[in-house]
């Protein structure tokens, strides 16, 4: 966005650019960008791939599902402040993973059971929420399923919580200008417990 409040096709002064371009996320289902020869944003900072939390599993059979993260209305950020509030915790008590009904059927996962979601960097356990709202993508002729987790859960409270932080799954990478984290698309696997 420009100083005049408008967007522009020509945007000088950005780390990448000045023209818009489509790149795949750092960790995605594709090994090759169908739009151009450059797969990922060449201007992003990539951390040491040899540390456990900086591993990347791109187009991997071990982690076949696209994962996205988001917030629920009831909690703020990691929920570290809002989970102490009884009314909010009552309305949104535990971590969950939303799974499309087609994928859930393939994996034999029933609504409301605990499952394990893992990426190459870590894993969390949470409740499966089977829904028609997540629909599979058709990408380069392949059906790719997506799952989604809120990032509002973790440790400390409630005292007996079994939830882990969704951040254990996500890659440490941000956009090239502001380092706004790329937690909207990365790859995971979902298994029954």
């Amino acid at each position: 966005m420009q100083k005049d409040g408008m967007g522009a096709l020509f945007g000088p002064g950005m780390a990448e650019g000045p023209f818009p371009e489509h790149y795949e996320p750092l960790e995605g289902p594709l090994a090759k960008n169908p739009m151009s020869g450059q797969l990922i944003n060449p201007a992003i900072h990539i951390f040491d791939k040899h540390s456990d939390v900086d591993k990347i599993a791109r187009a991997s059979e071990k982690f076949p599902y696209v994962c996205t993260t988001y917030s629920c209305t009831e909690h703020w950020c990691s929920g570290a402040l809002t989970r102490w509030q009884a009314w909010l915790l009552e309305a949104m008590p535990e971590a969950y993973v939303e799974i499309g009904d087609l994928l859930a059927r393939d994996l034999g996962i029933r609504n409301g059971v605990r499952v394990k979601v893992s990426s190459i960097r870590g894993s969390v356990q949470c409740v499966a929420m089977v829904t028609k709202r997540f629909k599979p993508f058709l990408i380069e002729g392949k059906t790719i399923h997506q799952v989604g987790l809120p990032f509002n859960y973790g440790w400390l409270f409630p005292k007996d919580t079994k939830d882990d932080s969704t951040n254990l799954l996500s890659p440490s990478v941000g956009d090239a200008n502001t380092f706004c984290p790329e937690y909207k698309a990365f790859m995971v696997n979902v298994t029954k417990l």
Partner: peptide, 15 residues
Amino acid sequence: MPGLRTKQIGSYQNP
């Protein structure tokens, strides 16, 4: 009215 402990049962509807 107090908020009581609930479980995630696979729905946004809670209690």
